[in-house]
């Protein structure tokens, strides 16, 4: 396994050790180890059905693991009490693949919902913050009273990102943030993630298939194959790797198209 030589100097915010998870007799994650460091953008790749989303959902507690430990901000999520879990959950935000906006609430209510539940703020401040978050993700106040079903795909992703950022989390999990967006929209979204990451000092855990995203925004890439993390490191390490799957992925036909864009 490709270990980062300087890993012990960095602050580990998510520590996955020896995790096994699966459905029925089908084991998806087979003794997975992974570290995510503070302030980095980690791109998490792997073939379709390799279990990228399963690992993300295991970390955030939607899927129960069978074995192993997951520590987030040093809290062992398996052994944590409900109060400790909630304290951690308040510090992360999640962008689901389909947005998962509450369909019966307006955009503004969607953004205010987590803030209203956790903090006791005035309606005026809630409204102003909702608009501020919308502007941060490149929208404006005119979408406030729209319902999620009235938004386009790109707008849904942006609103969902704004909701993930509502409580100023330290980690954001992004599940295929650019899937279903056109190349211009996807490029804008990449820039947006990079900007927000810089301004808010976020740690980003991004499940993606988008080679452009990997080239432009990711500091480090982790690769999941055969139920294990087979490699983790910056883009250069990936490109230099001799592993057949990595070669196929990063030197395939589509990769060659993506490569010149970073130069």
């Amino acid at each position: 396994m490709a270990q980062q030589p300087k890993s012990n100097r960095k602050d580990v915010v998510i520590e996955v050790r020896d995790v096994v998870a699966g459905f029925g007799s089908h084991v998806v994650l087979n003794h997975v180890d992974l570290d995510v460091y503070r302030g980095e953008v980690l791109g998490f790749v792997g073939g379709s059905g390799a279990g990228k989303s399963v690992l993300m959902r295991t970390i955030i507690g939607l899927i129960h693991k069978r074995q192993g430990t997951i520590k987030v901000f040093g809290t062992d999520m398996g052994a944590a009490t409900d109060a400790e879990r909630r304290a951690v959950e308040r510090r992360w935000g999640i962008l689901f693949q389909q947005g998962a906006l509450f369909s019966s609430l307006t955009v503004k209510e969607n953004l205010e919902f987590p803030v209203r539940e956790y903090l006791n703020l005035s309606q005026r401040l809630l409204d102003e913050l909702a608009v501020a978050k919308l502007e941060m993700v490149g929208l404006d106040a005119s979408v406030c009273d729209k319902f999620p079903s009235e938004l386009s795909g790109g707008m849904t992703k942006r609103v969902a990102l704004a909701r993930a950022l509502a409580l100023d989390p330290e980690i954001v999990f992004l599940d295929e943030p650019t899937s279903g967006l056109d190349p211009i929209g996807a490029g804008d979204f990449d820039t947006l993630i990079a900007t927000l990451q810089r301004t808010l000092g976020l740690t980003v855990f991004m499940v993606t298939h988008d080679l452009d995203s990997l080239h432009t925004v990711c500091d480090r890439i982790a690769v999941l194959a055969d139920g294990k993390v087979i490699a983790a490191g910056p883009m250069e390490t990936m490109l230099a790797s001799e592993h057949p799957w990595l070669k196929a992925y990063f030197h395939g036909k589509r990769a060659r198209l993506a490569e010149p864009s970073r130069k």
Binding site: E128, V131, A132, E135, D140, A141, S142, C144, T199
Partner: peptide, 11 residues
């Protein structure tokens, strides 16, 4: 970022 927030458009 917050300096550029415009509230006027809020319905």
């Amino acid at each position: 970022e917050v300096h550029n927030v415009k509230l006027d458009a809020m319905p």
